[in-house]
Design a protein around this nucleic acid. Structure first.
Lengths: 221, 221
DNA sequence: TAATTTTTGTAGCGAACGATGCAGAAATCA
DNA sequence: TGATTTCTGCATCGTTCGCTACAAAAATTA
């Protein structure tokens, strides 16, 4: 039971020149801790007591800074997407070809999902968050739209590759994007069950064989 | 916690003609409803009140018949595996070739996970059950072992195919089995997000292209 | 019928949940 | 410094959680 009671220095730069006592804890650092907690335990299984202990603050401070558990989760989701999604999407967006983009996405996912790219929980927070559809409909919708973003990125990149001639026009872009999305989603669950980076990389390589067969012009029927 | 109370001979058909009032509800039907509830909402999000309402009984009857929420979930998981897993594994075990076995598994999964094979919640109960690792370690272990069974089935069948000569000995059985497992897991999440049967079947077809490329003897390096 | 046995509905237990009231502590401004 | 403003720790709110004691109710046996 560590007590992270140390103050977490306040950033005087961002502290508004308001009168009265400024916030004594670093909001971003607290949000980062909450994010990791939600990430590893899920929304329902994470209690306010868990959060306040991890953030080193009391419940009133939490509610003053974030409003509610729902709002905190929403901010944590935003924090996650802002700070961690780049680990798997940077090379995707920088790749010259769609094939290399998808390969990078899956290989980097294999590394990120198994915690090999830093100190982070296993699996993808967005993929694994099965926020109950009961009573938290807005959060569920937010998570679902986050998952839909993955499909959008894939379809846009694939359609561009089709325009460029990298992919034959006969290919079903939507199906191929769905396939990649499926593999990435499945890898999160395997990572949670203890599969290591090498195993997921093997999975990514087999998946790329499916890509090659699907995008091979000679394979058209 | 869990005291082993009197065993409560529940098999009412085969139990000796007990004196006193017999159970007024169908245990199997109640278990089926509980299973669907756990399946669609998850363990934590399903309360005893939800269960008793869906089962049409009061809390004392629930606890007399099943012991605890944990035990009920364990029975529900067993009920699920007994009644629903056959929908996706029957053709797998009956197939003549490993390829047809895997193809059937994925295609039948596409149908079952989207609720096209009857009145059932979307996705796989085993795959989507992210039972928190906190406080419910035994349930988590049970679910994890259920997921491991999928990998076992796949590896056994693939190894058999390798012995039969269907698959080249150069193929990494473990990686290929992990790949199939990954696709099936990912399909559950897509199904939960609203993907329909045709989409998942397309995914399965693309995945099979990966299988073909991987098991093609000409592709050995 | 009465006696026996078991279930069921009601009502509520302690604990934990998400969320707050309050008063003192602390930092800024005058 | 004192005045003002805001945050923080403690205690607790009302609710819901999983779970159970209790006694009436119901079905079987005699």
């Amino acid at each position: 039971m560590q007590k992270s009671k140390q103050p977490i220095k306040v950033d005087k730069k961002t502290s508004a020149r308001g009168r009265g006592r400024p916030r004594a804890f670093d909001r971003e650092a607290a949000l980062a801790r909450a994010t990791q907690l939600f990430w590893s335990k899920g929304y329902e299984a994470t209690s306010i007591a868990d959060l306040t202990e991890a953030m080193g603050i009391g419940p009133p401070s939490l509610y003053a800074a974030f409003g509610s558990k729902d709002a905190l989760y929403a901010e944590a989701l935003h924090h996650y997407r802002k700070h961690y999604e780049a680990l798997v999407w940077d090379k995707f967006f920088a790749a010259d070809t769609a094939r290399e983009a998808v390969r990078s996405l899956l290989m980097d996912s294999a590394a990120a999902l198994t915690g090999c790219l830093g100190d982070m929980p296993l699996g993808c927070m967005v993929t694994l968050s099965s926020v109950g559809s009961e009573g938290h409909s807005e959060l569920g919708e937010q998570v679902r739209s986050a998952r839909a973003a993955t499909l959008d990125h894939l379809e846009i990149r694939l359609r561009q590759a089709m325009t460029n001639g990298e992919i034959p026009t006969s290919v079903d872009i939507h199906a191929l994007a769905r396939f990649v999305q499926t593999v990435q989603n499945g890898m999160s669950i395997l990572a949670r069950d203890g599969a290591d980076r090498a195993e997921l990389e093997d999975v990514a390589r087999v998946a790329m064989l499916g890509w090659d067969a699907r995008t091979d012009p000679a394979a058209d029927a």
